[in-house]
């Protein structure tokens, strides 16, 4: 029996339903709200997409001719999957900023004072962000194709690659939601870039970890972004440039394990934080 069944208010419209039904319905309504924001403010999505496209072009052309891939291969071919992974990873910042903005405006308080499913706020935000990320990825891939990148591994493998990229984005949504409720103001959220930027750089996005000092290479190899980047390179048939360590040899496995671990840790944290938010 759910709490809703006992409420006689607005009788005739409110039907008793399973908790799971409302969890999905509430999630979709929150997602719809986020997507409506984009719909009312299309400029926001242009800004959000502008940066990855610009950096893809910049890195591609500025570094493209100067960098060598250990083990051979075209650097730009090597770079593109890395850029995709990095963009997906940095997406958590969009989530965090959106969440802290909501929280600072009091809308989150209203949600919390309503009888909606406790998971809906995080899950709805996640669903919407994933839809936006898929659009982002499609546009990035189209841009990459324009500057000569190719995925030669076949259609199923390519789809698998995009799937892994979205899986990374998915797992980091919860980090974003959690951080968004942890930092006090939207301005403070900007400070997260200072942490996020090195984390995305110490990875195999731009260069192979085997070219870094040992300790840094170790960190870079174990970075979840590296696992996804390497796995996606394999699936797309792009140059891989692995250093031969265990984690690099098992990139495909780790590209699934890492997101699962991140989700298992941060999804409950995010939901709990939402429920216990005591600002």
């Amino acid at each position: 029996m759910t709490a809703l069944e006992q409420n006689p208010v607005t009788t005739g419209v409110r039907r008793p339903r399973a908790t799971a039904y409302w969890a999905v319905s509430d999630c979709w309504n929150i997602a719809r709200r986020v997507l409506t924001h984009y719909q009312r403010q299309p400029v926001a999505i242009v800004w959000q997409l502008g940066f990855p496209i610009l950096s893809l072009l910049l890195y591609g052309y500025v570094f493209g001719s100067a960098m060598k891939v250990p083990g051979g291969g075209d650097y730009r071919e090597f770079l593109m999957p890395g850029m995709f992974a990095m963009t997906m990873a940095m997406g958590f910042m969009n989530t965090a900023v959106a969440v802290v903005t909501d929280a600072s405006k009091g809308v989150v308080d209203r949600f919390r004072s309503m009888p909606m499913a406790p998971s809906a706020f995080a899950a709805g935000r996640g669903t919407a962000d994933l839809v936006v990320a898929a659009a982002e990825l499609a546009i990035l891939a189209a841009t990459a194709l324009l500057i000569g990148w190719r995925a030669d591994g076949g259609v199923p493998a390519a789809l698998g690659g995009f799937g892994l990229l979205l899986l990374l984005r998915f797992s980091l949504i919860w980090v974003g939601v959690w951080l968004g409720m942890l930092v006090p103001t939207p301005e403070a959220a900007g400070g997260l870039y200072a942490v996020a930027f090195p984390v995305t750089m110490i990875s195999s996005t731009f260069v192979s970890p085997s070219l870094m000092p040992d300790w840094l290479g170790f960190l870079a190899a174990w970075n979840p972004i590296s696992s996804t980047a390497t796995a996606v390179r394999e699936l797309f048939g792009n140059p891989v440039a692995g250093g031969g360590t265990w984690v690099e040899e098992h990139a495909l496995l780790m590209a699934v394990v890492w997101p699962l671990v991140l989700t298992l840790v941060f999804l409950p944290l995010a939901v709990r934080r939402f429920q216990r938010l005591s600002r």
Partner: peptide
């Protein structure tokens, strides 16, 4: 502090909250 969604219209706000109160779309 007013807790309404700045990114929506007045009507969209009320409809969203209504759906989250489980009224169903039409109601």
């Amino acid at each position: 502090y007013a807790a309404v969604d700045e990114g929506l219209t007045g009507r969209q706000n009320l409809e969203m909250f209504g759906r989250l109160f489980h009224l169903g779309n039409r109601a």
